[in-house]
């Protein structure tokens, strides 16, 4: 879904401002992504699903 939106915008951006803004976007996207991932999940821990499943069965 994100690529779909970005694809539609790319045509307008390239037509209006040329390729520069697109490469600036490419250049920072991963860094921003990594910061967001780190904020969402400061430590990589597996999801804990067992309890919920078991309790659902018990109910």
């Amino acid at each position: 879904m994100t690529s779909m939106v970005v694809a539609a915008l790319t045509g307008y951006v390239v037509a209006t401002f040329g390729y520069k803004p697109m490469f600036i976007f490419a250049s920072c996207s991963y860094l921003i992504g990594l910061i967001v991932i780190h904020l969402v999940l400061p430590a990589l821990r597996p999801i804990e699903v067992v309890h919920e499943r078991v309790s659902a069965v018990v109910d």
Binding site: T2, V5, F25, A26
Partner: peptide, 10 residues
């Protein structure tokens, strides 16, 4: 989300 759009742009 932060990587795929860049790849598809290329």
């Amino acid at each position: 989300i932060f990587a795929d759009p860049v790849w598809f742009f290329y």
